[in-house]
Simulated assay, not measured.
Amino acid sequence: MSPAPVVPRPAATVLLLRDHPHPVPGRSPLQVFLQRRVTGMAFAAGMTVFPGGGVDAGDRPDPDHWAGPGPGWWAGRLGVDPDLAGAFVQAAVRETFEECGVLLAGPGVPPDVRRHRADVVARRRTFTDVLAANGLVLRADLLHAWARWITPVGSPRRYDTAFFVARVPAGQEADAHTTEAVDAQWWNPDEALERWQEDEMQLMAPTARTLQEIAGFAESSAVLAAAGHRVIRPITPTVRCEGGRLVSVLPDDTTIPADGFQGRPA
């Protein structure tokens, strides 16, 4: 008798976007922030990913420190109940702050933001506590839903991950000051995909697919505008062996290598 599938843990990830003021000739100005995870991680070790992580018990919205569309609105957008929708958004903002120092909150960034970030990472304080202590509100209006991906059935660790897009607020910079990544930098989507195709970068199927989707846009404003028109349905790939390699098969029968690039996607 086969064991029951692992129940996916809720998670959130954010495509942080910006427009390079002086793009490389032949490249669009659009850039996305990517992190290469340390090889010792239990999930996606060595993979290049967008900032994000699992929903924590403390990721429960506080209406007194929340601005923009509420959990009920996000529930309709993401196809989940309001509690989970609010947790997705809260986790997305918290993880972005923890992993790359970008605070999707307002009005402004506190002068001792590094200390607050360290406290949240170490779980000495909750993210909501930091917002309240500094008179800030979570800016849900800065996020735009892009997709939901669920790890294939049969995987020992499974996640139900909400993908959001957001432009880095003016005056803020994303950094690589996280213990979960060995490298973090801005990439033009086409350049990242080329590195993947050359086996110089490892991408999971959701990351590769999302980079392919945003690569068709020249600027961050176009990505944000497109996000509002996307229909969000959970995507659960299946995995099969094809030509001696593992591939992730998407609902539209597109296949993406699941074990490194080793060839172009079909």
Rank of each mutant, 00 (worst) to 15 (best):
E180G: 15
G68Q: 09
P8G: 09
R9D: 14
Q31G: 08
A208L: 04
P21D: 08
M201V: 07
Q197C: 14
G101Y: 02
T236K: 02
P206N: 04
T161Q: 13
L246Y: 12
P110T: 04
H22K: 11
H22W: 12
R158I: 11
V223E: 05
M204F: 03
Q172G: 10
D81F: 03
E99L: 13
R94Q: 13
H177Y: 09
T210P: 05
A215S: 15
P110G: 09
G53E: 10
A205G: 13
A258Y: 06
R60L: 15
R114G: 10
V121W: 07
I235K: 00
A92Q: 05
T236F: 05
G72S: 08
Q202Y: 08
L211W: 08
P51Q: 06
R125Q: 15
H229W: 00
W74I: 06
G263T: 05
S220Q: 03
H22D: 15
D252C: 05
L246W: 13
T48L: 05
H144P: 04
W186C: 09
A133C: 02
E173S: 13
D83C: 05
A215V: 02
M1T: 11
A266F: 02
M1I: 09
V231K: 06
E95N: 13
T13G: 13
A44T: 01
L246D: 14
V247M: 07
G106Y: 00
E95C: 05
G216H: 08
P8N: 07
T126D: 14
S155Q: 13
A57C: 03
M1S: 13
A105E: 08
L211F: 08
F164P: 04
P21C: 03
R209K: 12
D175T: 15
N134H: 15
P21M: 03
P237I: 02
E180W: 12
D129P: 00
V130D: 12
R36M: 13
V120I: 14
A218L: 10
G101A: 09
W149T: 07
R36D: 14
A181L: 08
Q197L: 15
Q35V: 04
L78S: 07
A87T: 01
A162H: 01
G228H: 04
D160F: 06
V89S: 10
I235H: 01
D160I: 01
V6C: 14
D81Q: 07
G244M: 06
W186P: 04
V32H: 03
V32A: 15
Q197Y: 06
Y159L: 13
E219M: 10
T254C: 12
R209Q: 14
F50T: 06
S220E: 10
E173M: 04
W146G: 03
P234A: 14
L224R: 10
V109I: 15
S220Y: 03
R240L: 14
D141P: 02
G260P: 13
R94F: 09
S220T: 11
A215Y: 06
D112S: 08
A184K: 02
D190Q: 13
T178E: 10
G70I: 00
V102A: 14
P257R: 01
V121L: 14
L103R: 02
A42Q: 12
R117S: 08
G52K: 01
S2M: 02
P8C: 05
P71C: 13
L143R: 04
G54I: 10
S28Q: 12
Q35W: 00
R158E: 15
